[in-house]
């Protein structure tokens, strides 16, 4: 298969890499190698009050051709997320924004309701809106209808590395929502990323799993390969094992008649 042709699209932009890398929790000097080993074309980052002059800035460490995806972490409601989005666009110069709205500091679970509101406003302003969300079908439909470019359901609570705890619900979203479904948060191992891709996810986003690995550049590459493997498996059509076997002793089709004129 020609890997180059297997792209997915966000807001009219085509991407060949299906691994979105988070940039949190690294020492800055490792980020470049990590992005390169991951083959990532999209890297997320957060917005914070700036350090006074002279200190190192993350943008100095991100390769030029990478699409910056600022998130709205820290936002507790739609209005705060919208404010962060506007500020982020000033720096990134692009309209990509990942909506993250949490009002729960213990589990960091996203607030779908506020997220739908933020998507609605920002999509109308022309942002490429990528909402991080709890995998709920009704909210996902609302986000789609509000103009989201994709949906980013969580696999497990952020940073837990617990994998696809919400698997059945993500499957439903993949089936029902005609937008890229990008599994975000909770992916702890390459095998879990691979499984998400086998299920038909458009991409996987990971951060903690890479940032906390023993050798983080190597882990970035491991994720890259697992995501590609999962994608290939999905495209090739998984062989399936039947659970239920026909019971030949009680056929259901015995009633059929070939000559069926009036009886």
């Amino acid at each position: 298969m020609d890997q180059k042709k297997d792209t997915f699209s966000l807001g009219g932009h085509e991407f060949t890499s299906r691994f979105i890398l988070g940039s949190g929790k690294y020492s800055l000097d490792l980020i470049r190698a990590c992005v390169e080993n991951a083959g990532a074309q999209i890297v997320t980052m957060a917005l914070r009050r700036a350090n006074e002059g002279g200190l190192a800035n993350i943008l100095d460490y991100i390769p030029e051709n990478v699409t910056l995806l600022p998130n709205t972490s820290g936002a507790r409601n739609a209005d705060e997320a919208i404010r962060i989005a506007h500020l982020s666009r000033e720096i990134s110069g692009s309209s990509f924004i990942k909506i993250e709205i949490m009002r729960d500091t213990k589990y960091l679970l996203p607030d779908n309701y506020e997220t739908v509101r933020a998507v609605d406003v920002l999509a109308k302003e022309g942002f490429v809106v990528m909402p991080y969300m709890y995998p709920d079908l009704n909210s996902a439909r609302d986000m789609r209808d509000a103009g989201a470019a994709c949906i980013m359901p969580l696999g497990a609570p952020i940073g837990t590395n617990k994998g696809l705890a919400t698997k059945e619900f993500i499957k439903i979203l993949i089936r029902e929502i005609d937008l890229p479904v990008i599994v975000d948060a909770g992916i702890g191992r390459p095998s879990q990323a691979c499984e998400a891709m086998e299920m038909g996810a458009a991409a996987v986003m990971a951060n903690t799993a890479v940032a906390t690995a023993g050798n983080i550049q190597m882990m970035a590459e491991a994720f890259k390969k697992s995501i590609e493997a999962g994608r290939l498996a999905y495209l090739s059509g998984l062989g399936r094992v039947r659970e239920d076997r026909a019971d030949a002793s009680s056929p259901l089709t015995g009633f059929l008649r070939d000559d069926e004129r009036e009886e």
Partner: peptide, 28 residues
């Protein structure tokens, strides 16, 4: 037949003449 959730493509296969020999399996 084995798919967990069937797509339009699966539906297309199930309506094809190739599915007639599998009618009992389909019924089950």
């Amino acid at each position: 037949l084995a798919a967990e959730d069937r797509t339009p493509e699966d539906f297309a296969a199930l309506l094809s003449p190739a599915a007639l020999p599998y009618l009992e399996e389909m019924a089950q």
